[in-house]
Design a protein around this nucleic acid. Structure first.
Lengths: 257, 257
DNA sequence: TTTCATTGCGTCGTTATGACACAATAATAC
DNA sequence: GTATTATTGTGTCATAACGACGCAATGAAA
């Protein structure tokens, strides 16, 4: 396992060990307090937030590079992730952007430095259990925080577009991807699961019909415990029957939402 | 518009105007005689077939590069295409492959030539009207032909894997993508449309229930003509109401298949 | 002990779905 | 020119799924 490189090292010698013109960005989804959240980095010397990203070593599988970035930002080793799109418009790489940021950081970059090339970026989205994540900024950022999906206005470069595309993809793949198991803790309540679906879909669902339908799939089992402490009636806890869940997702859950 | 380059030019000077380490491959779907087909190239000096592909100019949008490749292979200018995956395993670029092929073609390549780098390839799938396509081989191939999806065993490098991924993606996006309008001629019969769905899904559907459901969406209108010439009762012709079709696809067609 | 929002469990009418029957039709065989 | 045959157009029927809603049970707070 390689240690994280300093910015200076990356700028000066990156061309030697990174793939040229290629980067990746991660949209890391989490679910907390009934909100769908994304892990963002606050950039040094700029009033902008950005998606966690990185470069790919010359002999590294892109997927592994994504796993590496995910590990560095969240501390997690076993993460569900899916590549969802490549962003390849020439206009997305504005040289001014980077050289200005780096100058503010006291780093001089020559005009032909590899970091100022045109970059293609591969987008990955990840589904993680909010509670187990320890957000960790990288070398070029001063903070790493969860942000509510619906509160995000602008991001660095084309990252807002990347985020929107990730969300669109997630919606389209809803019936093929283990959102419930990956975004919720082991034990969860029915209202929590429903809220998760509602925030991803961006619309309200009927409480009773949702429960009937989700249970009819047969991969969710009710436990004998309830979640006490809420302000009202204690809801039952549920958990996934992972074998059945996986099998159902392979075919795709039947029906729309 | 740039003319197609010769192989020699590409090898010798490609590094000057192409993005390094980046290529694209196209899975071009067509529908003919009740079979879902893909456009393949038979490679020079090798008993293999490959997907049409190409490189990306340094200032070119990847999407445009895909459009360019599609135009060169099919003669079509207005094509529906979707980027579906990036293939980035280091093992997919085997140097032997290319240098052997090129040697057989009488072209010598030095060990550090850019064409022997590791390559990442962006996969696009396209939906085209079979009847309007004029298959055209490229510089490195001797033939360009339609092949039945279900008859394809092996392909060049990892192209079979790319093809399988495209097909999987198409299935998953079935309710969001205008397969009918793009793969069929303007006027088509109900059995033709049904066969299209059946071959993509890889399973049989009930004739009468299919018709009821597809018509209930409301974006297919029956014409007053029938398709004569078949061995039996002449079926009605239908065509799409494109406005309604587009609108329905934006939401995703409701229900599964 | 009462209040109140939430949860668990149901009902009811409508719509969608899967399985199937039967008549109409166009080319072909006789 | 008539019969044959495979295919298409239309409809039925029982069942399952779906959307909208009612109401009692619960647990914390008033």
């Amino acid at each position: 396992m390689k240690r994280e490189l300093s910015i200076k090292e990356t700028i000066q010698r990156g061309a030697n060990f990174f793939m040229p013109s290629l980067s990746l960005d991660c949209v890391i989804f989490g679910f907390h307090e009934n909100e769908l959240k994304v892990l963002l980095l606050k950039m040094k010397n700029a009033d902008t937030w950005a998606l966690p990203g990185g470069f790919i070593y010359k002999e590294e599988d892109i997927e592994n590079a994504a796993i590496r970035v995910l590990r560095e930002r969240t501390g997690l080793h076993d993460i569900f992730l899916r590549q969802f799109h490549v962003f390849g418009q020439p206009s997305r790489s504005e040289k001014k952007f980077h050289s200005n940021l780096l100058r503010k950081d006291g780093i001089k970059v020559s005009k032909d430095n590899w970091i100022l090339q045109r970059f293609i970026t591969v987008g990955y989205y990840a589904l993680v259990d909010f509670a187990t994540v320890t957000p960790e900024p990288d070398q070029s950022s001063v903070a790493c925080e969860w942000k509510d999906i619906y509160s995000i206005q602008d991001l660095f470069m084309d990252h807002k577009h990347i985020l929107d595309t990730a969300l669109y993809t997630l919606r389209m793949q809803l019936n093929y991807v283990p959102i419930g198991h990956k975004l919720l803790p082991q034990k969860f309540t029915m209202p929590e699961l429903q809220k998760l679906y509602e925030t991803i879909l961006g619309k309200k669902l009927d409480r009773r019909n949702f429960q009937r339908r989700i249970l009819s799939f047969g991969f969710i089992k009710r436990l004998k415990e309830t979640r006490k402490g809420g302000a009202h009636k204690a809801p039952f806890l549920y958990s996934f029957d992972l074998k059945k869940y996986k099998k159902a997702l392979e075919q795709g859950l039947q029906g729309g939402w």
